[in-house]
Design a protein around this nucleic acid. Structure first.
Lengths: 147, 147
DNA sequence: CATGAATGGTTTTAATATGAAACCATACTT
DNA sequence: AAGTATGGTTTCATATTAAAACCATTCATG
């Protein structure tokens, strides 16, 4: 009767969700991308229960999304930082951000803007391209089984 | 003591996760994108408990991600279909799929391939572009507060 | 060096969510 | 008219979440 696992599903979406498909994990990753590295920073910024945060940090570390490193300031406590696997969640976060901006702000545009660092202009929606570079829309893709 | 809500957070990522950040919702959306429309189809394909499927379908409908329509075959039961808001989750699913394919298949490449319909070649990783079209990497973006 | 406060958790307890199975009403088939 | 499929709801046991209290180290201060 524990939570149904999708860890070994054939579908990569299911496997991803099994790893980070809960209410908190991606918010922790978001904070980590914003430069937060310590237990207290995560807890304060997210306002979440400390036991749950501890459990999530442990799990994200086991999954290789975060890693613990000796404190940067030589202090005794360790810090959490994103691995390459964790950093690569950026595109998931961007997709969630863009969907949220488009559909979850009925009261008007949200208070944050994802911009291009050079020009400070809002970025375009994520794009999917074919191998040859053509821009693909929802109708232009197909899921193949390689079995 | 209920689940902490992020429904009114300033962050669009948090709002998105509040809506669909659980273990099942996006899998239901995935099934809907694959053409599944009926309770029994979702239940069979996902193998999930019927009561929680019912609860999720209700919630996704309330959120405007699914809508119920009279059965296509004139039958008495209704069917579920994606709204525009629901269809727009495609990019989130693609992002999760690509991350999963890259990091959650330690045993080798997964059994599915997202391909371009015209040429049947695997699509490229999602791309983020600046307003002027420049391809942006993780270091090229910035989050601005508009307060 | 002793004391107090901050940090990084763990433990305890209560409420809620999940999962499995049984149940039930309606619709459809024969 | 009887039997079966569909689309749920109910019940119950277990797991997860949240809040708060607790505790051990570490760090700063006198």
């Amino acid at each position: 009767m524990r939570r149904t696992s999708h860890e070994t599903d054939a579908c990569p979406i299911a496997r991803s969700l099994d790893a980070i498909g809960d209410w908190w994990s991606l918010l922790i990753v978001r904070e980590a991308m914003g430069g937060r590295r310590r237990f207290g920073q995560f807890q304060k910024n997210l306002g979440m229960a400390r036991n749950i945060l501890a459990a999530r940090l442990r799990r994200l570390t086991e999954l290789g999304i975060l890693q613990t490193v000796p404190a940067a300031d030589g202090g005794a406590h360790h810090e959490y930082e994103l691995t390459a696997k964790g950093h690569d969640l950026l595109w998931v976060l961007v997709a969630l951000r863009q969907w949220g901006d488009r559909h979850q702000f009925p009261e008007g545009p949200g208070p944050t803007l994802l911009v291009d660092r050079a020009q400070r202009l809002p970025v375009k929606p994520l794009e999917l391209h074919a191998a040859d570079g053509r821009l693909l829309g929802p109708g232009d893709i197909l899921l193949l089984s390689v079995d």
